[in-house]
């Protein structure tokens, strides 16, 4: 009979060493461990001064969408499949309007205040529905921003359809960009740490088997509400810095883009572990800018690329890359 071969995956030696032994000695081990973490951070911090004004804007957008994607990924890993990142984003924007325009707070107060208020308001708004699961929670979060947008249009509060110009801007552009980058990196590593802690374990367990967590006498709704608070604060923060950057608030902040693009980024980069979401948004946002030259065909091509990449790598680019990084293939005989 013909000998048949199959692919077999094995951990690389350096991976096995660095996983378990913590007194790492060799330079190679340390490089292996640190390079995927340090190199991107260095890249992010060094690159901005070399960018032109246009690429700066693109980079800022990528960070904002990255923050939203992180917030989506965080909620998804707590079992809350949210399609309404634009809800958090838009509420964050309008809170900046309240704090900056009506109360006249300085910028270093209005950003943290509005992200915290967004977290509180969204947790209060969504706490009745955190008991919903799966697609039902997704639908309600998809509909809420649309509803708010129509309400603003119909009632005309906060500038109505015209929006409100004249929000205080950042002292200079590069400062705003660095704020975006630093907060993006901060939340990336903060969320990774959080999900590794005991608190994150509870959240992950809620996703896997909520009834099991309930039977351990843990109030899962309270935990889910807290998760919404964290996710919404991050989304609200993204909205707040965007508002200060563009010095304008409009209904467009509830637009579907802010819900769909983070979702697409996460699907492209790989769900879970946050690095995939970050990577995905760093790919998708520049891609959509490149496609802008094509005019009307842009969205269609963009969606096609998205579908193609999801079909090619359903697990996401990041998980694929990390497997290549830590494992190798051998051919093994099929018994």
């Amino acid at each position: 009979m013909e000998k048949r071969l199959r692919k077999k995956r094995l951990d690389r030696g350096v991976k096995a060493r660095t996983d378990t032994i913590f007194m790492v000695a060799s330079f190679k081990d340390i490089t292996y461990l640190l390079s995927p973490r340090v190199l991107p951070v260095l890249f992010f911090l060094v690159i901005p001064p070399f960018l032109g004004p246009y690429s700066e804007k693109v980079f800022f957008h990528a960070c904002v969408y990255g923050l939203l994607a992180l917030s989506f990924d965080f909620l998804a890993s707590c079992g809350l499949f949210s399609l309404g990142q634009s809800l958090f984003f838009g509420i964050g924007c309008y809170f900046v309007g309240i704090y900056d325009h009506f109360l006249g707070l300085p910028i270093y107060l209005s950003i943290p205040f509005s992200s915290l208020s967004t977290g509180l308001l969204c947790a209060a708004l969504l706490s009745p529905v955190v008991r919903l699961r799966g697609v039902y929670f997704a639908m309600i979060t998809l509909m809420l921003p649309m509803l708010l947008m129509r309400l603003i249009e119909a009632t005309g509060v906060m500038g109505g359809t015209h929006g409100m110009p004249g929000i205080t801007g950042f002292p200079n552009e590069i400062l705003g960009l660095y704020l975006g980058i630093v907060s993006f990196l901060f939340f990336l590593f903060f969320l990774r740490k959080l999900m590794g802690s005991d608190y994150g374990l509870v959240l992950k367990a809620i996703k896997e088997d909520d009834r099991c967590v309930m039977s351990s006498a843990i109030n899962i709704y309270w935990y889910k509400a807290q998760a919404v608070f964290i996710g919404a604060s991050i989304g609200g923060f993204a909205g707040a810095i965007t508002t200060h950057h563009f010095q304008f608030i409009g209904m467009s902040s509830f637009a579907l883009d802010y819900s769909i693009l983070p979702l697409a980024a996460t699907a492209l980069g790989g769900q879970g572990g946050f690095a995939g979401a970050a990577l995905g948004s760093m790919i998708l946002v520049p891609l959509s800018e490149v496609l802008r030259e094509l005019g009307g065909l842009r969205m269609a091509l963009y969606c096609l690329i998205l579908v193609a990449s999801i079909l090619a790598l359903p697990e996401g680019i990041f998980h694929f890359l990390s497997r290549q990084y830590s494992q190798f293939y051998t051919e093994a005989e099929v018994d």
Partner: peptide
């Protein structure tokens, strides 16, 4: 997640292509 993104993106692709 992938199911949802796939159907939504396909729909948008069709609609935007027709607009174009």
């Amino acid at each position: 997640l992938a199911e949802l993104v796939t159907t939504f993106a396909t729909g948008v692709a069709i609609l935007e292509f027709m607009t174009w």
